[in-house]
Simulated assay, not measured.
Amino acid sequence: MNPNLLKQLAMVVKQGSISAAAEQLFITQPTLTRSLQQLEMRVGAPVLARTRYGMIPTEIGARLAQIGERILAETEQGDEVIRQWHSGYDNQFAIGIDPLWEYATVAEMTSGFLSQNRYVFHCRVGSAATQIEWMQGGELDFLLAPAHLSVAHASGSQGALQREVVFRDRSGVFVGKQSRLLGSQQPISPDVLEQQRWLIAGASAGFLSGVEDPAAQQAARIAFTGGIRSVIHLLNTTSMLVRLPARLALMTTEIDPQQMIQVEGQTSARRDIALWSRRQDSERPDSQKVREFIRDWVTGLDHSVGEFGLDL
Rank of each mutant, 00 (worst) to 15 (best):
N4C: 08
N4T: 13
L9K: 04
V13A: 02
V13W: 00
G16V: 01
S17A: 14
A20W: 03
A22W: 00
F26A: 11
Q29D: 04
T31Y: 12
Q38M: 11
L39N: 02
E40D: 05
P46F: 10
A49R: 15
R50A: 10
R50K: 15
G54E: 12
I60Q: 08
G61Y: 02
G61D: 05
G61A: 04
A62W: 08
G68T: 09
R70Q: 13
I71A: 09
E76T: 06
D79I: 14
E80G: 07
H86L: 14
H86Q: 15
S87N: 15
S87P: 06
S87K: 14
N91K: 09
F93K: 02
I95V: 13
P99C: 04
W101E: 00
W101P: 01
A104F: 01
T105N: 14
V106Y: 11
A107F: 10
E108M: 13
T110Y: 15
S111L: 12
S115C: 14
F121A: 05
V125W: 05
W134E: 10
F142A: 08
A147R: 14
H148D: 07
S155R: 15
G159T: 03
V165K: 09
G172D: 07
V173G: 01
K177A: 10
Q178H: 13
S179I: 11
L181K: 09
R197C: 07
L199F: 04
I200D: 00
A203R: 02
G206L: 10
F207G: 02
L208C: 08
S209T: 12
V211F: 15
D213H: 12
A223Q: 12
I228R: 05
V231R: 03
T237E: 04
T238S: 07
L241C: 01
V242E: 06
V242A: 06
R243C: 13
A246K: 04
L248M: 09
L250I: 00
I255A: 00
Q262M: 05
S268W: 11
R271V: 07
A274C: 07
W276P: 00
Q280I: 12
E283V: 13
P285Q: 08
V290Y: 06
R291N: 06
L301P: 00
G309W: 02
L310H: 11
D311V: 08
D311K: 11
